[in-house]
């Protein structure tokens, strides 16, 4: 299984996109590291606007973003994609995902938004749209008792409960909540398919990055000294990401 990142494109404006990538990478330099990225055209404000996928691919490559497929779009986009050596994926059937995206775009009308979903391995030359669509099985919790090491990535559709350390350079993603009863030193991304009510709970807060529903924050000890190594929960409060100590019973 691989985790794909989706770049949700709302408008095709190269200079603005470049700016947005620059900002994103300044905050999280390794955001796209070694990650196949899918550009989604499903939410283009003007669906039949031309998108030069050759140029977009090159633009992305300049920022170390590895575009490998498009999702949605018209047949011209599809042809353009195959010329640019990219696969085409069918739009996922879920509507919940769509709703949340629209909400956000109404609020701030971003150019593009980064989302993540998981898929079975994908072959650019042999696109298998069905196998790539996110699985819509009923979400159940998954429990992991072994450490998640640097370079490893865990994705789960549902809640993720981890009882061993998540290392620097490791990444855990869940569509639901993430509980970590051990040090969180890597990245944790909860509610990744549109659940802004998802939370992250960890008993030992030392992460590189936390994210709820695509709202992420890179963390450093200097910025979070009062939370560092404590038991913390992270959740969305309106539009902002909140990080607060957990109540662990009366103080001694």
């Amino acid at each position: 299984m691989v985790t794909l990142m989706t770049l949700e494109l709302y408008r095709y404006d190269e200079p603005m996109l470049a700016q947005q990538f620059q900002r994103l990478l300044a905050q999280a330099p390794r955001f796209f590291e070694n990650r196949p990225v899918v550009v989604s055209l499903e939410h283009l404000h003007n669906p039949d606007s031309p998108v030069d996928l050759h140029r977009l691919k090159r633009l992305c490559a300049d920022f170390g973003i590895n575009l490998m497929a498009i999702r949605g779009g018209l047949s011209v986009h599809r042809e353009n994609a195959s010329e640019a050596g990219m696969a085409w994926l069918a739009a996922p059937p879920s509507t919940s995902d769509r709703k949340s995206t629209v909400q956000i775009s109404q609020q701030e009308i971003p150019l593009a938004e980064v989302k993540e979903f998981s898929a079975t391995p994908l072959h650019p030359d042999k696109p298998k749209p069905n196998s790539v669509a996110p699985q819509e099985q009923p979400a159940t919790a998954r429990v992991i008792d072994t450490p998640i090491r640097s370079g490893q990535q865990i994705y789960h559709n549902g809640d993720l409960i981890i009882t061993a350390p998540v290392s620097v350079g490791a990444e855990v993603l869940a569509t639901g909540h993430i509980h970590i009863y051990a040090p969180l030193r890597g990245r944790a991304l909860a509610g990744i398919r549109g659940d802004s009510k998802a939370r992250i709970y960890c008993t030992h807060f030392e992460p590189e990055l936390v994210s709820i529903h695509g709202h992420y924050k890179t963390i450093s000890k200097a910025d979070c000294s009062d939370l560092w190594q404590k038991a913390i929960q992270i959740y969305m409060d309106g539009d902002s990401l909140k990080m607060t100590p957990m109540y662990l019973g009366p103080k001694e």
Binding site: T146, P147, I148, R149, S150, G151, Q152, S167, V168, G169, A170
Partner: peptide, 24 residues
């Protein structure tokens, strides 16, 4: 330490014991 952590991840994913779901 960072590199050792990475190797531990590889032991868990790319070794024969991992691939064949044997005792780690």
């Amino acid at each position: 330490v960072r590199d050792s952590d990475r190797i531990l991840g590889i032991l868990h994913s790319k070794s024969k014991r991992a691939e064949q779901n044997l005792e780690p």
